[in-house]
Design a protein around this nucleic acid. Structure first.
Length: 885
DNA sequence: GCGAACCACATTTTT
DNA sequence: TGTGGTTCGC
């Protein structure tokens, strides 16, 4: 055991504590079983977490294999690994630093057989799960209009997040129901709980028959495994002596229990007497990091009490508060503090910074969403043109994905390159999903949901009838659809034509499986084979619908993603590929920190959590939009909205914009929108309004109580670009003209040279890391929302296609200028080109040093610096706290 | 079994 | 806005 441990770069206490404030240093060193780091926004929590891990390794004598670090997103995990690598060396790459879900997959792949999961199990995404629920509903004669599969699934998800098993539900509400027995009916029910209980039970039965798990199962079934199998539990408890959880405020009950189980907190085992650190037995040491003010996932089962009651839950727990913020100006923090302070029942916490007041928050009230977008676009052009910001310094945030459209259009009109994060996801596209369904069905023959999805895709004359025959047979024999297909010849009463077609399909799948078996290590070739042999690609290629062109692109992109996975994974397998694709999230497509994409970023506030940008636009600050209308009646949901506002505000480092529209089109209809209450919550003296009132407001008679500004019509256009913000009296003295805003839009943004290149990055999907991007051929235009619409012939679509063409040409003409901006003149980030042997630099910790070598490896460039008495260090330029002299 | 046409629907956030 | 489901005619 000892010998297999690879070396960890030893770090001295001084190194690990260098540059930390008192609280941070205390958190890094804390020596005890349970630690809560209450880390306000921007307080350097990731830094503390990674240093703490390094501390445990080099100062407490822990081994890398004893540590389990859990995050919520792959991106966060990758980032932590990367930072750890610079701190302790390549060992970090092999440590358990992962998301809850992938850690659970890993555990279940290893030991899932103990609870009846065969190792090649499928992971169903929400769409798969919904299909399954729908199938069940139809069979149980449930009115899917009244009880949508979506809502039923949400309920099932609630159960699972709360670790409530289907057995319990069934026992309590429908003990007569027999899952898996065809013809079993719910019977009469006056209580919807009966319905939920039956569907839940049947759903789990089908999942297990298909050797599949859904998202929530990954957590719940891992808990089940640990609880039912003492041997397995013991194994992990001995293994993981230190468990660290990031974003703890977002954990749900199941995840909370998982941590306790893995850590053996309730196991009753005694701590090794006199051991260093957590020793080799007894409860693992738990460190959690979080901010209850940033809990924004309660709607998905996150339980804020987990963090609020940490001290009660874990014996001898210690809490350390991090309140110094290293990200934002005091103005921004004051706004954030003011907003969040209105939430009742929270522990008071006030962020502060040493960075100074900075400029005021800038407000803008537009007449409608188009104008809001147009103004933002002009403003971005100004920031890029006059203030020296890069596009990648700027982010636009909104409450809901639907709001992105008007912003996108404005940016396109202005020729500003942007990148949209989220929205319709790559793996949710029909064509991609179809191809993936084939892969799933190949890998896991029992996977009924995916097999049934593709049985007639592409069209091969196998309709509802054929499917019914097959599933009837399968149900009668309590076997899978695939087995039924194999036993095709013994199915009676099947039309010859159907039998033939089914036979062809069976042979197709058999052939593909054989191919997959022989080429298991080359998923990209399996993808190619599937696209080819199934006719998926051929069907799209022969189509004349322009939409299908992009679908073909998407499929080739899928192949590239597989190729990329293959290159970055030493022991690549088809199953491994399916796994990585099953667990990707929106935020995973975000560029890495410090990378200049040359594009403005658009995303929802939820996706933005954990990120920071020099310039942030919070758009759609209207009642009903944000806070969202559905959240406005319920006090606790409103509190969550307020936390979301807090998250949004604290993303900004230097300049924060808040914008609103007086009229916004919602599902086709225009609606008048009142200003968001959150705008009122920000102290007036922090905001400088470029335009405070809209034409609509004027008619309505002002919106702030008192109506003292009834006559203010705005008048932003005069002069705002000629002077800097900050010191001018609010919406004030500059010459005003009474503009209703209708004349807006004819002005000439777009005329200057800020057009830049578009979409410099290639893949936004698949695995990150390792510089070399393969498959650059699937260029950058994906990610804008174009091409996602369907249908096809209205005039609107035509316009949008034209815009897409515009985008494409921009992307092709990715100018030398844009290329240059990627590698040069990065304010803040450091550039290899600026470093030469012999140059002097200063380092936050080591002080003055001389460069002895420079390795230009693009993003991963390394310089070697001689710090005299502090020694010679190799530093990753991207992350090292150095400054050139 | 298929495709076109129509209609009703719902629209928050997602590991 | 667009999607998904249903219906109808072939």
């Amino acid at each position: 055991m000892i010998n297999e441990e690879p070396e960890v770069i030893a770090r001295s206490a001084e190194e690990l504590l260098g540059g930390l404030n008192e609280q941070q240093a205390e958190a890094v060193q804390y020596d005890g079983p349970a630690l809560l780091i209450a880390a306000g926004a921007g307080s350097g929590k990731t830094r503390v977490l990674t240093r703490r891990i390094a501390w445990l390794l080099s100062q407490t004598g822990a081994w890398p294999s004893q540590i389990l670090a859990i995050t919520f997103t792959n991106k966060a995990a990758a980032e932590m690994k990367e930072r750890l690598t610079t701190l302790i060396g390549p060992v970090a790459q092999r440590m358990w630093v992962s998301t809850f879900h992938s850690a659970c997959v890993r555990i279940l792949r290893r030991d899932g057989e103990r609870i009846g999961l065969k190792s090649g199990f499928s992971i169903y995404d929400t769409a798969d799960s919904q299909r399954l629920v729908k199938i069940i509903c139809t069979e149980l004669n449930i009115d899917v209009k009244r009880y949508t599969p979506r809502s039923i699934l949400a309920r099932i998800s609630d159960y699972k997040n709360g670790l409530i098993g289907w057995q319990e539900r069934l026992k309590e509400y429908a003990p007569q129901f027999r899952p898996g027995v065809r013809g079993s009916q719910i019977g009469s029910f006056g209580d919807v709980e009966v319905l939920y209980a039956c569907v839940y039970a049947e759903y789990q039965y089908r999942l297990s028959a298909a050797n599949a798990v859904d998202f929530d199962d990954l957590i719940m079934r891992t808990v089940e495994l640990l609880r039912t199998d003492p041997m397995v539990a013991e194994y992990y408890r001995r293994k993981f002596r230190y468990i660290l959880v990031d974003e703890y405020q977002d954990t749900n009950h199941a995840q909370y229990v998982l941590v306790r189980e893995l850590g053996g907190v309730d196991g009753g085992a005694a701590r090794e007497p006199g051991a260093r650190g957590a020793g080799r037995s007894g409860p693992a040491w738990i460190t959690v990091v979080g901010d209850s003010d940033q809990s924004i996932y309660a709607f998905r089962g996150a339980d804020i009490r987990n963090i609020q009651e940490f001290e009660k839950d874990f014996p001898n727990a210690r809490t350390i508060m991090l309140e110094q913020n290293y990200r934002s100006t005091q103005t921004i923090l004051n706004a954030a503090n003011a907003v969040i302070a209105l939430n009742p029942g929270r522990k008071p916490k006030k962020l502060w910074t040493a960075l100074g007041d900075g400029s005021k928050i800038i407000g803008y009230a537009a007449d409608n969403a188009q104008q809001e977008g147009a103004w933002i676009a002009t403003e971005i052009a100004r920031l890029a043109g006059e203030e020296g910001y890069r596009y990648s310094d700027i982010a636009l945030m909104y409450r809901a994905n639907a709001q992105s459209r008007s912003l996108e259009e404005a940016l396109i009109n202005a020729g500003i390159p942007y990148q949209l994060v989220g929205g319709t996801k790559f793996y949710e596209r029909k064509e991609v999903k179809d191809a993936m369904a084939y892969l799933q069905a190949i890998a896991n023959p029992d996977d009924d949901v995916n097999l049934r999805r593709i049985i007639n895709v592409p069209k091969r004359g196998l309709g509802a009838r054929a499917e019914a025959v097959l599933t009837m047979f399968a149900a009668d024999h309590r076997t899978s659809a695939w087995s039924a297909l194999e036993a095709l010849d013994s199915i009676e009463g099947m039309p010859t034509r159907t039998a033939n077609l089914l036979g062809q399909f069976r042979d197709l799948m058999t052939g593909l499986r054989a191919f997959a078996r022989q080429n298991d290590g080359k998923p990209s070739e399996i993808v190619a084979e599937v696209l080819e042999k199934t006719g998926l690609l051929a069907e799209l290629k022969k189509s004349t619908d322009p939409q299908d062109m992009t679908r073909v692109d998407n499929l080739s992109q899928l192949q590239s993603v597989a190729a990329e996975y293959e290159q970055n994974t030493p022991d690549a397998t088809l199953n491994g590929f399916l796994e990585t694709t099953a667990l990707v999230a929106d935020s995973d497509q975000l560029p890495d920190e410090g990378e200049d994409t040359g594009t403005v970023t658009l995303m929802t506030l939820h996706t933005a959590k954990g990120l920071e940008y020099p310039v942030v636009f919070l758009t759609g600050m209207e009642q009903g939009t944000f806070p969202h209308s559905r959240a406005m009646e319920n006090e606790s949901e409103l509190e969550e909205e307020r936390r979301l506002a807090y998250v949004g505000i604290t993303r900004a480092r230097q300049i924060l914009y808040v914008t609103r529209a007086a009229v916004r089109a919602q599902w086709g209809q225009a609606a008048e929108m009142l200003p968001s209450q959150f705008l009122d919550d920000i102290p007036e003296n922090l905001i400088e309004w470029k335009r405070r009132e809209t034409g609509v407001d004027a008619l309505r008679g002002g919106w702030r109580s008192g109506g003292f500004d009834d006559d203010e019509f705005g008048g932003f256009e005069e002069g705002y670009s000629s002077s800097s913000y900050g010191s001018r009296p609010r919406w004030g003295s500059a010459a005003r003209k009474a503009t209703s805003g209708s004349s807006y839009g004819s002005s000439s943004y777009g005329s200057s040279s800020y057009g830049g290149g578009y979409g410099s990055r290639g893949s936004k999907y698949g695995s990150r890391g390792g510089g070399a991007r393969t498959g650059s051929s699937y260029g950058g235009s994906y990610g804008s929302s174009y091409g996602s619409s369907s249908g096809g012939k209205s005039g609107r679509v035509t316009t949008r296609r034209m815009k897409k063409d515009l985008l494409d040409s921009l992307s092709k003409a990715k100018s030398a200028a844009a290329r240059k901006s990627e590698s040069a003149a990065q304010s803040g980030a450091l550039n290899v080109a600026d470093f030469h042997e012999g140059d002097k630099v200063t380092h936050d910790q080591y002080g003055l040093g001389t460069i002895v070598a420079v390795e230009d490896k693009g993003r991963n460039s390394v310089i070697t610096v001689d710090f005299g008495s502090d020694g010679v260090k190799r530093l990753l330029l991207r992350v090292a706290p150095i400054e050139k002299l």
